[in-house]
């Protein structure tokens, strides 16, 4: 045969054969040892893992869903620690684990403040620009102890882009994007992010428990505990507790009379399907 490349064909074939041999030997060795050295793993872990949300949000306190599944099967935690899970999957996991678990009402996070720029500043803050650092300087720059600082610590933390600071300097949760992981709730230095039933029709966007006059002097959008909402409600769904209206979302029918009556626009309509 005429060798048009003018090379010894064996120079190509021989190294190829040697390398392929090495590769095959390693492959067989690995495959064999993989079986010999395989570690028994509880099949439940994989079953449970398949039912978890898989977003690795860390809201349960474990390092991701894999870790949560392992801890769960080992009995180190409870199913309900996962706040993202829907009730169907919760029931299935409970069945696998042989425990009973009752699903709650699906909830989302909500920022309970309406103040922002309408709330007076105690002093001018010139710092790193995050809420946690701000809070360290004599309880934050806002006059209100329950006032959103608006430096977007929650917004930067959120893995789902569900919180943004609006034009009024208040963080607002987008309920469509919120997965209820609870990261913002745990990090907000003012503790004004709470959970609310996803189906709730109204939300009281203020957590100031001071008396009306004190609130009035520091914030134009704060609850002054005037009880107009309680009187406006025909369904007995609102009660005054510690100078704040507390809504019973089961009784609320969404007539929005309280929203209309509130002189400070503290009670907000929520957009729910």
């Amino acid at each position: 045969m005429y060798n048009f490349l003018a090379i010894d064909i064996m120079q190509v074939v021989f190294p190829t054969v040697v390398l392929v041999t090495i590769a095959v030997v390693f492959a067989v060795l690995l495959a064999y040892l993989g079986k010999v050295l395989s570690v028994e793993r509880d099949a439940k872990i994989d079953e449970v893992r398949a039912l978890l949300p898989g977003s690795n949000c860390g809201g349960c306190g474990s390092a991701g869903c894999d870790n949560f599944a392992e801890t769960l099967v080992a009995g180190g935690t409870v199913v309900s620690a996962c706040t993202q899970m829907n009730n169907d999957n919760l029931a299935k996991i409970a069945e696998i684990l042989g425990v009973t678990a009752e699903g709650g009402v699906p909830t989302v996070a909500v920022v309970r403040c309406n103040g922002g720029n309408a709330c007076k500043d105690k002093y001018t803050y010139l710092g790193y620009g995050n809420c946690i650092a701000n809070e360290l300087v004599s309880g934050g720059s806002k006059s209100c102890a329950w006032g959103c600082i608006g430096m977007a610590t929650c917004s930067k933390l959120c893995n789902y882009g569900a919180i943004n600071v609006n034009g009024d300097g208040v963080s607002v949760v987008d309920p469509k994007k919120c997965v209820n992981c609870g990261l913002c709730i745990s990090q907000c230095p003012k503790s004004i992010i709470t959970r609310i039933p996803a189906s709730a029709k109204i939300v009281v966007a203020c957590m100031n428990q001071d008396k009306g006059k004190d609130v009035m002097s520091i914030c134009a959008h704060g609850c002054i505990a005037c009880t107009l909402c309680v009187k406006a409600c025909e369904f007995d769904a609102i009660k005054m507790v510690n100078n704040l209206p507390v809504v019973d979302h089961d009784k609320c029918t969404g007539c929005f009379k309280c929203v209309e009556k509130c002189p400070k626009n503290v009670i907000h309509k929520r957009e729910v399907e």
């Binding site: 021989f14 040697v18 390398l19 590769a23 390693f26 060795l29 690995l30 040892l33």
Partner: peptide, 25 residues
């Protein structure tokens, strides 16, 4: 085998398999 010039690719094979093996062990 007089294949010293193949060391790069051969070493890649060896190291990749070794890491897998060590992990299993």
């Amino acid at each position: 085998l007089d294949l010293g010039y193949l060391r790069t690719i051969a070493f890649i094979l060896v190291i990749a398999s070794l890491v897998q093996l060590v992990e299993m062990f």
